[in-house]
Design a protein around this nucleic acid. Sequence first.
DNA 1: CGGTTGAATAGACGGCTGTCAAGGTAGACG
DNA 2: CGTCTACCTTGACAGCCGTCTATTCAACCG
Lengths: 140, 140
Amino acid sequence: MSKQETEERVLAQLAEVVGCCSPLAREPLSAEQSGELARVFKAMGDPVRLRLLSLIASHAGGEACVCDLTDVFDLSGPTISHHLKVLREAGLITGERRGTWVYYRVRPELLARVATVLVPADPADGVVPAGREVLPVVEA
Amino acid sequence: MSKQETEERVLAQLAEVVGCCSPLAREPLSAEQSGELARVFKAMGDPVRLRLLSLIASHAGGEACVCDLTDVFDLSGPTISHHLKVLREAGLITGERRGTWVYYRVRPELLARVATVLVPADPADGVVPAGREVLPVVEA
DNA sequence: CGGTTGAATAGACGGCTGTCAAGGTAGACG
DNA sequence: CGTCTACCTTGACAGCCGTCTATTCAACCG
């Protein structure tokens, strides 16, 4: 089985999980929930911001200096700064000044929370199709 | 261990996965990839659309008539229609007319694809922290 | 056929957003 | 202190977005 076939298969399985058990599909989101979530999705709804997020997340040491980010894009400094601010206000990243430079790092908690809306996060909920079993949490 | 403690624990584990192994964190997204993804996130970046998506996904039979959706919101029909169109053009839902009514259903494949950006989808990639093991795909 | 109802389209309008140029602030270094 | 560098803030402006009303389309029913 090729790599691609594997990916397609896993994707189909994931789709099955999403379709039946994701919190999104289990019960309607409240106005409040959808408001909070939408804020995060909205922040990720821009190609530049998504790339910034990815650049920061994948950078060595888990953090990236603004100077590492500006060169990648054909955009002015203020524009990058603006996008970083949007990501920061959405809670997706944090910024810290150390000396001359400002370093950004992602907050995986928030990405995780978003992911739990799409795929079930609680093993206790248990409804997992064959082939994508999730083992229960092992007590410490 | 309470339900909430469990959730927090799982969330922390998920964050660990996202932080180290999600495609988003493994290597920077290309301009093209981020463009495609951003289109989907943008469509989900509105509270009304997110709620519509959730209402459709969680509705009995996996599909919902437009008439089921309009009453939930304090919005005009055309506005709902507009949001449904945005979701449709993002590939998140499909609409089908049967007689007088139009029924919408979600396309879990696309939600799954989005999810794979946040959490690793390929068991072959394997780097899964203890407590959240993913079994390999069983060959047919 | 004409009327009624469910849904989509067209057009308009206010507000938000992405972008830039200009100016401001914080730290490093003589 | 002055100046240089890295970054942010402000203000402006074009374009997009969410919302509405009015209109159109599609299907059912007398």
